[in-house]
């Protein structure tokens, strides 16, 4: 279980990112939806502390993340995979090298610096690339891959960490419908294997189609937290309240 309690974040420009956020993530696919600037990314990045909240608590199992020291934080991060809208792969490297990056956090410092990967790690990386349908692209430079392929390399990199949780920051925002379906189906399959998937989405219909649980965010506050079946028009109106007002105006 991943538990967030009383989380607050204010940006240096005094913009409120999160306000007294309380939410518990359970295994399965949880979609975080909300208007642009509502705090979805802030919430997601507060989980692995790519953004540091000022107060509150983020716990993965029995480990506190918000106040963890640097060494503990690296260990916790290794348990949490992350995929990004812009993939954030090292484009100059081959797909297999990017996937292998996923195991760096679990290696000794020297082995990591030397880029020494064991035969088992290399075999696992090839296996994961095959699993995401990119076995034939292992040695291809990431710069030469399509958006959908890059995102699948990103997923393989996250899986290389053998994560308990995968955070997905708008993973389909740059993808065409076919790639969107492929990526979301893959995330659904991973959830069935017991990996907790937390995904930021802009598309409500996709969230309804693939998520088991929905968290609605508006102006840094949680305004909906419940099973997908409970996401009715009233809940949507609450989640997108400001956006609706802005559009009316």
């Amino acid at each position: 279980m991943l538990t967030i309690a009383g989380l607050n974040k204010t940006y240096p420009n005094h913009k409120r990112g999160l306000e007294a956020v309380n939410v518990t993530f359970a295994p399965g696919v949880t979609a975080i939806i909300g208007p642009s600037g509502a705090g979805k990314t802030t919430l997601l990045r507060s989980i692995n502390r790519l953004i540091t909240p000022e107060s509150g608590s983020v716990r993965l199992g029995d480990q506190e993340i918000r106040t963890a020291n640097a060494k503990a934080l690296r260990k916790i991060r290794h348990r949490i995979g992350m995929i990004f809208q812009d993939y954030n792969l090292i484009e100059e490297l081959a797909a297999i090298d990017n996937v292998l990056h996923g195991c760096l956090g679990g290696k000794t410092w020297l082995a990591g610096i030397l880029g020494h990967y064991t035969a088992a790690e290399q075999a696992r990386a090839y296996e994961l690339l095959a699993e995401v349908g990119l076995a034939d692209f292992a040695t291809q430079r990431c710069a030469d891959l399509s958006g959908g392929q890059k995102q699948r390399v990103g997923i393989a990199r996250a899986l290389m960490q053998s994560p308990e949780v995968i955070l997905c920051d708008e993973p389909i925002a740059s993808l065409d419908p076919a790639s969107t379906q492929a990526v979301m189906t893959l995330l659904g399959d991973l959830a069935k294997r017991g990996i907790m998937i937390i995904v930021n989405l802009h598309q409500v219909d996709i969230a309804r189609q693939y998520a088991d649980h929905i968290v609605g965010v508006n102006q840094g506050r949680i305004v909906f937290d419940g099973p997908t079946a409970g996401l009715n028009d009233a809940a949507l109106a609450a989640i997108y309240a400001k956006e609706a007002v802005a559009e009316d105006a």
Binding site: N48, A70, R74, I76, I80, M82, N88, H101, R157
Partner: peptide
């Protein structure tokens, strides 16, 4: 891109 590596548990030098 650097944040993506940090998110996997890599420290500064890695």
């Amino acid at each position: 891109k650097l944040a993506a590596l940090r998110a996997t548990g890599c420290g500064f030098w890695l």
